[in-house]
Amino acid sequence: MTKYVDQGKNDTRSGYGAAMTELGRTNSDVVALCADLVGSLKIQPFIDENPDRFFQIGIAEANMMGIAAGLTIGGKIPFTGTFANFSTGRVYDQIRQSIAYSGKNVKICASHAGITLGEDGATHQILEDIGMMKMLPGMVVINPCDFNQTKAATLAIAEYEGPVYLRFGRPKVANFTPVDQKFEIGKALMLNEGTDVTIIATGHLVWESLIAAENLEKQGIAAEVINIHTIKPLDKDAVLKSVKKTGCVVTAEEHNYLGGLGESIARVLATEHPTPQEFIATQDTFGESGTPAQLMEKYGLNNKAIEKAVLKVMKRK
């Protein structure tokens, strides 16, 4: 199987911060907004170098979304920054009317997504955001898997005209995708070719899927691993091509199974190529306090859970 090396654990939010520093230097239209979480979003270097292009909104996320929409009128490219929970659930109607329906070129950049936010607990761990955002007509939804990919995605969305939801996380995780990779919105990445099962993963679950695939290889199972960093628009050709070969699929995401990546895949398969599918996702539940690793274990979001799901789905072929 294709070997992936962890170049050193890092957090995806730092990938966002690094890209913002770069955008600050290369794209004078880019402006950053933040609702009192500069440190968490890692954007201090952008602020230091571009104080006029930074808007500290305070703890007022609804206002932030509206101001971002307004800033596009005049040609700016606003990147909003706060936790995923406060980037979506708290401000759904503001995003819906002032950004999505109004077709504004706002980049909603959301850190601390999912259960791996950890100790702060369920009030801060949103597991519904992908669903909310993908339901908005015209909204692009991206969930990169590591530092390098988050950086590349952040640079790419600045070049894309239209509203984008970019979701990333808090914990330091394996950084295994290439430095300076080209990020193509809506293009799935084949990480490992296999013939027995397709594992389609997004975000932090991509690395877990690669570990699972390695373990499965030892059992003689050749798992194909696809990194779907863009949940909407979905690269359905990549999905169909793979499942036509393997005949079964496991989807893996740090999100509720209702509304997430798994459902998007299931919709494609149900209409175009019905295929047995298992869902690695939270089971319609809130999270709780704990370390990221403990929570991933308890809520069935790690490589062991993926491995089990693979064995199960292969029996259903």
Partner: peptide, 25 residues
């Protein structure tokens, strides 16, 4: 028309953003 409105309470934020863009420009 430069923004959708109807769901109330959102226009002032948008106007502020547009005003800030004018200053930057």
């Amino acid at each position: 028309v430069r923004i959708a409105s109807g769901s109330l309470g959102q226009g002032m934020s948008v106007a502020i953003g547009a005003a800030q863009a004018k200053k930057l420009n």
